[in-house]
C-alpha cells in the first residue's frame, strides 16, 4: 500500500475520498427510496416536496400489499426452520463422521449455491407443474429450502471446525449417548453459528425473487414478486415505502448477524 501510494497526507486523503465515493455509489440507490417513501402519494418524486406517511398507510391498508408481505414472512420463517432441521444435522455429519464420499456429499449440498438461479427456477417450474405444486406455499418453501441450505451449512460447518472435538469425546466417555451429545454438547456451542446461518437464510428467502416469480401466481405471491409486477404494470410510489421497510428489515438482520459474529469471536 505504502509502496504504491506513498504515505503523504494527500494520497491518504485521495484514497479515503475514493472509498467514500464508492460507498455512496453503492448505497445511493437503496437510500434514495427513503425520502421518496415519505413524499407525494400521487407519483414518484425526488426530491419530495412534502412529508407524509400516506404511502405507508396505503401499504398497510391494501390487502394485496400487506397480504404478500405476510406471505413472504411466512415463507421465510417456515423455510428457515425447516432448513435448520435439515442442514444442522447434515453439517454435523459431514464434519464429524468418517462417511465415505464425504466431499462428494458436501459438494452436492453446496450445489444450489452454484447453479444459476434462473436455471433452478425453470427446472423447479417444470417439475412442480407435474406435481401440482405451482402457486402453492409448499412448493415455494421447498424450493427456498434448497436455496438456503448451503448458507446454513457453511455457517454451521465453520462453527463446528472451531468447536473442540474433545468435548464430544469426553461426553461420550462420561456415558452420554449420541443424541445427548448432539443436543447438550454440540448444539449449545453452535448457537451463534446457527443463528447467523438462520438470519442469512431468512433474509435470502425474504427477498428471493427469481424462483418465486417462476413458481407463484396470484395465490402464493410473495412481496418481492408483487413489487416486481407492480414495477412492470403500475409503478406506484407505494414501492418506495415497501423498499424502505425491506431495507430496514435487512439492516436489522445484518446488524444482528454482525453482533452475533462479534460475540462468537469474543468467546470462541
Amino acid at each position: 500500500m505504502n509502496a504504491l501510494f506513498g504515505s503523504s497526507r494527500l494520497s491518504r486523503n485521495l484514497i479515503a475520498t475514493a472509498a467514500w465515493l464508492c460507498y455512496v455509489f453503492l448505497l445511493l440507490p437503496s437510500l434514495i427510496v427513503i425520502p421518496i417513501s415519505f413524499g407525494n402519494p400521487g407519483q414518484i418524486e425526488f426530491p419530495p416536496r412534502q412529508f407524509t406517511l400516506a404511502l405507508y398507510q396505503q401499504f398497510f391498508t391494501d390487502q394485496a400489499w400487506w397480504g404478500s408481505m405476510v406471505q413472504s414472512l411466512l415463507v421465510a420463517t417456515v423455510t428457515t426452520m425447516l432448513t435448520l432441521v435439515l442442514a444442522v444435522p447434515a453439517a454435523y455429519a459431514l464434519v464429524r463422521s468418517q462417511l465415505p464420499r464425504r466431499n462428494l456429499l458436501r459438494g452436492l449440498f453446496m450445489m444450489p449455491m452454484l447453479v444459476p438461479v434462473i436455471v433452478l427456477g425453470l427446472g423447479l417450474y417444470l417439475q412442480f407443474s407435474n406435481w401440482g405444486l405451482l402457486d402453492t406455499t409448499t412448493g415455494l418453501v421447498l424450493s427456498h429450502i434448497m436455496l438456503t441450505t448451503p448458507f446454513i451449512m457453511v455457517s454451521v460447518m465453520s462453527g463446528l471446525h472451531h468447536s473442540d472435538v474433545s468435548l464430544e469425546t469426553v461426553a461420550s466417555i462420561m456415558g452420554a449417548s449420541r443424541p445427548v451429545i448432539f443436543f447438550r454438547v454440540v448444539l449449545p456451542q453452535l448457537k451463534a453459528s446457527i443463528a447467523v446461518g438462520a438470519l442469512f437464510a431468512f433474509l435470502m428467502s425474504l427477498d428471493e425473487v427469481v424462483v418465486a416469480y417462476f413458481l407463484t401466481g396470484t395465490k402464493a405471491m410473495t412481496l418481492p414478486v408483487k413489487m416486481y409486477s407492480s414495477i412492470r404494470w403500475e409503478l406506484t410510489p407505494v414501492l418506495a415505502a415497501v423498499s424502505t421497510l425491506l431495507t430496514l428489515l435487512s439492516l436489522l438482520i445484518a446488524l444482528g448477524i454482525i453482533a452475533l459474529q462479534r460475540k462468537t469471536e469474543a468467546n470462541p
Binding site: T169, V170, I173, G175, A176, S177
Partner: peptide, 14 residues
C-alpha cells in the same frame, strides 16, 4: 465408548 464406564482427563481440560 459411552458404555465402558470410564472417566478421562484431557490436557486441554475439555
Amino acid at each position: 465408548t459411552n458404555q465402558r464406564g470410564l472417566g478421562m482427563v484431557f490436557q486441554n481440560y475439555a
